[in-house]
Nucleic acid binder design. Structure first.
Lengths: 233, 233
DNA sequence: CGAACTGTTGAGAGGCTTCAAGCCTAGTGG
DNA sequence: CCACTAGGCTTGAAGCCTCTCAACAGTTCG
């Protein structure tokens, strides 16, 4: 389950949509493309594990990856998801530390590996790249701080409602208002920071209250204003 | 309580100890010193408030500042402390957002304000400065992610023990093993993410178990290995 | 010296977790 | 293609951890 089989297509390996690379010179961008290695990862693949040494960062060009830390008793805490256009593994790389979380594919994905050396080169030669990088980390830090406040002060019910709304922001809804990400109940619990059973019970309450509709892992948001109220936002 | 009265001394305004500025040229460092504005803040002063527009970041050259977000029902969630050698307000500044937390002095402090323009100048001209900045944000992000995992998975008891140990790391102990930071029970609760009464009860339990000793706000760590075990680290 | 804040303790309620048991689905291999 | 099996999902019951409310003591500071 660790490596890819098929090669990703040219289109799936395209980095030109990445905001991070927008201010590079043509030459610099060509260098990035020359240095990159893109692979296709099946659902369930591990990109890297907590504690491993990273040789570069990854650009997600397709699919969805979850990032989690392993906490008490091996219970995973999901920190965030990365989808097309986002990068992962850059934090530990910049700090020159071993990876402090694990990344796992939850929807068939294509990732392009950019070696550390290339990152180093860009930081040294293009201040606008560094600046973009700073903005990306800063955004993630703000979100982390917001989440600390929520998780420390809100009830599980409020947090679950909030997580559904956050997922809506990140992954949008289809025309039928269904969340475009498929998570197990356990994964939802590992975002919210609660037990799987609690998520199940609360989801059925939300369903009874006509806030959502459930069909297996598909979650349809019926009443977003009401969900927002439940989330105490 | 908002502004300073006395001027800080030359020594109290010295930025040469800051790792962040270590790689600046003499000229750049002179510029920073020229642009800075240092002030003395009394205990209880607010440096800036959530939602305010920031005009620069601050270097703490003396004292201790707490950074907190205001959550549900106005309850504050302490995110971190900043002491001598550390900087605050840089995150919102880099993101060009309004401040998303409040900073308040808990031990008489001297802070030097560095205007946004100077930050901008350094980022554009000295890649090593940007790199340092990146490392600072990355470190903070790792700590935030670690804390999310703890707060989501550990009991209040475990978190309180852990917070005591974290405070030990940040603020050291005197010769009698007393924590060199003075916090109210409510502030401790606002770090741990619990009710003040819970902190009080758990502290007396720790005291009964001979893990700590209490004299008002002075906390003496008697048995660090045992505390580590309680913290489940 | 009083007011306001901080700290302490008790009692009661309730949100959540844990354990347990059974059902269901989704993916695998024959 | 279908049977099978492992993992995911659901529900119930019991109990505990933690919060809230309340009352009061202690402390600090104007």
């Amino acid at each position: 389950m660790r490596s890819s089989i098929k090669r990703p297509t040219e289109e799936e390996s395209d980095l030109s949509g990445f905001h991070l690379f927008k201010k590079l010179t043509d030459q610099e961008f060509a260098q990035v493309n020359y240095d990159k290695t893109c692979s296709l990862y099946k659902k369930g693949s591990i990109i890297y594990r907590e504690g491993s040494r990273l040789t570069g960062f990854y650009c997600v060009t397709k699919g969805i990856v979850k990032l989690f830390k392993t906490g008490v008793d091996g219970k995973e805490q999901i920190l965030r998801f990365a989808k097309k256009g986002e990068i992962i593994a850059y934090r530990s790389l910049l700090s020159q530390e071993l990876a402090c979380n694990t990344s796992k594919v939850i929807e068939e994905a294509v990732l392009c590996h950019i070696p550390y050396q290339t990152l180093q080169f860009l930081i040294q030669n293009n201040w606008q790249f560094s600046h973009h990088m700073l903005q990306i980390v800063c955004k993630e830090l703000r979100e982390a701080n917001d989440y600390i406040t929520d998780i420390a002060q809100k009830t599980v019910r409020e947090r679950l409602a909030e997580v559904l709304l956050l997922l809506k922001e990140s992954f949008d809804l289809d025309t039928a208002n269904t969340l475009q990400i498929s998570l197990t109940r356990e994964e939802l619990a590992n975002i919210v920071g609660t037990a799987t059973e609690s998520v199940i019970r609360l989801l059925s309450e939300f369903k009874q209250d006509r806030l959502i509709e459930l069909q297996g892992r598909k979650i349809k948001l019926l009443d977003i204003p009401a969900l927002t109220r439940v989330a105490n936002l």
